[in-house]
Simulated scan of single mutants.
Amino acid sequence: MTPARAHLTRDDLTPLARAALGRRPTAVTRLRGGSRKGVYRLALDDDTTAIAYVWSPEEDYWGGPEPDLRDTFAHASGIDLFLAAHQRLTGLGVRVPRLLFADEDAVHLPAATAVVEDVRGGSLERLLRDDPAAARVPLARLAGMLGALRECTSAGHGKAALVERGGTAYGGSCEQAVADRAVRDVAAAAERDPRVRAARRALTERVRELRAAVAPRARTSLVHGELGPDHVLVTHDGDPALIDIEGLMYFDAEWEHAFLELRFGPAYDVLRTAGLDQDRMALYRLAMHLGLVAGPLRLLDGDFPERQVMLDIAEFNLRRALDLLRTAS
Rank of each mutant, 00 (worst) to 15 (best):
A187L: 06
R141E: 10
A114S: 03
D269A: 11
D301V: 10
T9S: 13
A111Q: 07
T153Q: 04
H86F: 07
A6K: 13
F259H: 09
L248G: 02
L286P: 01
K159W: 02
G122C: 12
Y284V: 08
R23S: 13
T72R: 05
A135G: 05
P240N: 06
D60I: 01
E164A: 05
L128W: 15
L203T: 10
V207I: 12
T49N: 13
L292C: 01
F82A: 01
T48P: 05
R219H: 06
G34K: 00
L13Y: 06
G225S: 14
H236R: 15
E175G: 15
A202W: 09
K159L: 00
S154C: 00
V293Q: 04
L297W: 01
A189L: 04
F259N: 05
A274M: 13
D193F: 15
A215F: 01
H236Y: 08
G291L: 13
K37F: 13
A215C: 00
R41T: 00
L142P: 15
L242E: 04
F251W: 06
R18K: 11
R5E: 05
Q87W: 08
T48R: 11
L324D: 12
L297A: 00
R192A: 07
L203R: 07
Q176D: 11
D237K: 12
H231F: 04
L242M: 09
F251G: 05
H257N: 11
G33E: 02
E226R: 10
R98T: 13
E315S: 13
A84C: 14
G144K: 14
R5M: 02
T113Q: 08
A198G: 07
E59Q: 14
T9G: 04
T72S: 11
E151N: 06
R184K: 09
A43N: 09
D230M: 08
L139M: 11
R18A: 09
H257W: 15
T220K: 09
F82Q: 03
L21H: 13
Y61V: 06
Y284R: 06
A321F: 14
L149T: 10
W62D: 11
R23H: 11
D269N: 15
D269L: 12
L271Q: 14
L271T: 12
V119N: 10
L227I: 02
S221I: 00
T29K: 04
I79R: 04
R95S: 09
V116C: 01
R208K: 11
R120Q: 01
G78L: 03
A213E: 01
L128I: 10
D131Y: 12
R219A: 03
V186C: 10
A213N: 00
L83S: 02
H289P: 02
L31V: 02
I245P: 02
G144T: 10
G22L: 12
V54H: 03
R141M: 15
A155H: 05
D71F: 09
E125T: 07
I245F: 05
G38F: 00
L299N: 01
D71Q: 15
R192W: 12
A314Y: 14
S173N: 07
D68I: 06
A328Y: 11
H257L: 14
D45K: 09
R307P: 00
A213Y: 00
V270K: 08
S173T: 11
L292R: 05
R285G: 03
L127H: 08
D252K: 07
R192V: 10
Q87V: 08
G171L: 04
V270M: 06
L262D: 07
G171I: 11
R200Q: 12
G121N: 11
R211E: 01
P97Q: 04
A17E: 07
R285K: 05
R263A: 12
P296R: 03
V309S: 06
